[in-house]
Amino acid sequence: MRVAVIQMSPGADKGENIAQARGLIEGLLAEQKVDLLVLPEMWTCLGGSRANKFAAAETLPVPGGTGGEAYEFLRGMAVVHNVYVHGGSIGELAGEKILNTSIVFNPLGEELGRYRKIHLFDITTPDGQGYRESAIYGAGDEVVTLDIAGTRVGLAICYDIRFPELFLALRRAGAELIVLPAAFTLQTGKDHWEVLLRARAIETQCWFAASGTCGTHHEGNGEPRQTYGHSLIVDPWGHVVAKASDGPGWAVATINKAFTAKVRANMPLLDHRRLA
């Protein structure tokens, strides 16, 4: 299976972000064939005010129903280009909160599953910037895997990467590939992004497809914030097999299930676990 991680530089304008995503997807597919497209975290609205975030969020339909602008864009890309689409994550309206939600479509435009980010980013980065996702976002509580083109895929989002118990649960649920859209901060990303992804890949013996945002966006008060980018694909031995450059673009790699099986057979980590 050929997987592409799309790297974007989104802002608070949902229409402009959708246009950027469309251009990147069409540019990639004009060059090469892939089976699965992966977008970044919250690519429809990064930054802006609380009101702006709520305005960009969507009420998700029951599977088979008609959704909002971003939902239908993702479904349309799957159908028009005959590919699986992992929609990174978008804002899902949930009363007084927004859920940070991944949606996956097959080439027929059918929804395969949803994952709602479990771990919320309430931290202070080394440069002193504070992040309080829980002020706006609610947390999910479900471990999600699904089948894409015969491969079992586990779903996670951004800050989840720091909690290895989630990824052990995904591996135990049969995951062979884990998809992780993100908007990693520049301050944390430059030190931890690749290290954490490679560690989780080695621990779980899974492929990782991690799609990130890059560039500068602005919060509602005008404060600039930078995200790290460096979208990448990692194999089950922890090697980075594809990586995007600094700006908008993509990285593509083939998921080799025979290699996964070999790594797991030679080092059967699940059989050797004693404490969890």
Rank of each mutant, 00 (worst) to 15 (best):
E92P: 00
M77Q: 15
P61T: 00
L36Q: 03
S89G: 09
V62A: 14
P63S: 11
L24F: 08
P63V: 05
G11Y: 06
G76H: 10
V38M: 09
S102V: 15
G68K: 06
N106F: 01
V62P: 00
I18W: 04
G15Y: 07
P10D: 06
I25D: 01
K53S: 11
G87H: 04
E72R: 01
I90K: 00
Q32S: 15
L108R: 15
K14W: 00
K33S: 14
G23Q: 15
L108E: 15
L28F: 03
G109E: 07
E110W: 05
M8S: 06
V34W: 07
M8W: 03
G91H: 03
E96M: 08
H81P: 02
A19P: 04
P63I: 05
A94R: 11
E110S: 11
P107S: 06
N100G: 02
C45P: 02
L60D: 02
E69N: 05
S9R: 13
M77R: 13
T66P: 00
Y84P: 02
M77Y: 09
L37E: 05
A94M: 07
S49H: 03
L46N: 04
V62K: 14
G65P: 07
A70R: 01
H81T: 01
L39Y: 11
A57V: 06
M42G: 07
D35T: 04
G11V: 03
I18T: 06
G27L: 05
G47N: 00
E111D: 09
F54E: 12
P10F: 03
Y71Q: 00
H81S: 01
L46Y: 07
T59F: 11
S49G: 08
R50K: 15
P63L: 10
A56D: 08
K14T: 11
E110Q: 15
G95A: 07
K33T: 13
I103H: 10
L29I: 06
E96V: 09
I90R: 00
P63C: 10
T66Q: 14
E92A: 10
T59D: 14
M42R: 13
G65M: 09
N82W: 02
E96W: 03
I103T: 14
N52R: 13
G27C: 01
G64T: 02
L99A: 01
L39R: 09
H86D: 13
L37T: 03
K33N: 12
N52A: 13
D13E: 14
P61H: 03
A78H: 10
F54V: 09
E16T: 11
L28G: 03
Y84G: 03
G87N: 03
N82G: 06
S89M: 05
P107T: 08
G65R: 10
Y84S: 02
K33W: 10
L108W: 14
N52P: 02
D13R: 09
P107L: 07
T44M: 11
A56C: 12
T59I: 12
M42E: 12
G109I: 05
K53A: 13
W43N: 07
G48R: 01
P61L: 00
P63T: 09
F105P: 01
A4E: 02
K14E: 08
Q32A: 15
E31F: 07
F73T: 11
K14M: 10
N52Y: 00
L29N: 06
E58V: 01
N106I: 02
G91F: 00
P107A: 05
E110N: 13
